[in-house]
Design a protein around this nucleic acid. Structure first.
Length: 262
DNA sequence: ATGGCGAATGCAATTCGA
């Protein structure tokens, strides 16, 4: 079984590329981020024609997440609010960034973590608060269920220096700051493993490259899209890799998909 | 990098992403 995550930067712009990639790579489950479309306008049909059950959680212009699965998902949860009490969630579900469902006793959690803009920005504080809420969300899922967890998506954080093309000078950069990394590390400490690193310890592997300045051509990238697994799934994982081929196409997403095989 | 590119909105120019 292949489970993938891909920030597509608009599903309406990218739908033909995504469909072809799903066919070419025989993907069983795909978690999408930045679909950038309200649910009523989501181009579902083409994906359903390929045999996928579709679960979408979108909004106008920004954010938006979706899961497509060949097997139907059970117990699908939309936003933090389907798991956490409303006094904790407050307004955090106004931005559509969280969707989750169960397949083969695995709860798949698909996330689009806020970018944060810069460490001086109010959006950075929002990102940190959002990560605190995510930790509570995952704590509940881990405690209350017998299911294993697969937590994936665009985390907008490079956990270590080997995840950035040039880490020097990035200490106060968004996606690499110590506070962000510690927040993400504390989430991993709930019992999640960055499965890509089980198979690939070396640097120079990235999942996002800036559209500007020839970032991809020069391989000036960041590894910010991740798949995290609980222990029993770590044992079952056969491989995890980034497919950079879609990033080479004309009019690509700025992110490449990450795939885990079981 | 006040930069550079791409998408959405809405139809020009601005906001946002990372």
């Amino acid at each position: 079984m292949k489970i993938a995550t891909w920030n597509v930067n608009s599903i309406r712009t990218r739908q033909e590329q995504v469909k072809q990639w799903l066919i070419d790579n025989n993907i069983d489950v795909i978690c999408l981020q930045e679909t950038k479309v309200i649910d009523a306008d989501f181009p579902l049909e083409g994906f359903q024609d390929l045999g996928y059950h579709t679960y979408i959680y979108g909004q106008k212009a920004y954010n938006g997440v979706a899961i497509f699965s060949r097997q139907p998902l059970e117990n699908v949860k939309y936003g933090f609010g389907d798991i956490l009490p409303s006094d904790l969630v407050n307004d955090f579900d106004e931005q559509k960034r969280v969707i989750s469902g169960v397949i083969n006793n695995i709860r798949i959690v698909n996330l689009y973590v806020p970018n944060g803009n810069s460490i001086e920005s109010e959006k950075y504080q929002y990102k940190l608060a959002w990560l605190d809420l995510l930790k509570q969300y995952l704590t509940v899922l881990k405690q209350e269920n017998s299911e294993e967890l697969l937590v994936c998506g665009d985390f907008n954080i490079a956990l270590e220096d080997r995840d950035i093309y040039k880490a020097i000078g990035k200490e106060n950069h968004i996606m690499a700051s110590q506070v962000e990394r510690e927040s993400l590390r504390s989430i991993l400490n709930l019992g999640l493993t960055d499965i890509f690193r089980k198979f690939t310890p070396e640097g120079n592997f990235y999942s996002w490259w800036d559209y500007r300045q020839g970032g991809f051509t020069k391989n000036r990238g960041w590894r910010i899209d991740h798949i995290y697994l609980t222990d029993e799934l770590v044992k079952k994982a056969l491989n995890c890799y980034i497919d950079i081929n879609p990033r080479k196409l004309t009019q690509p997403s700025d992110h490449a998909p990450v795939i885990c095989e079981f």
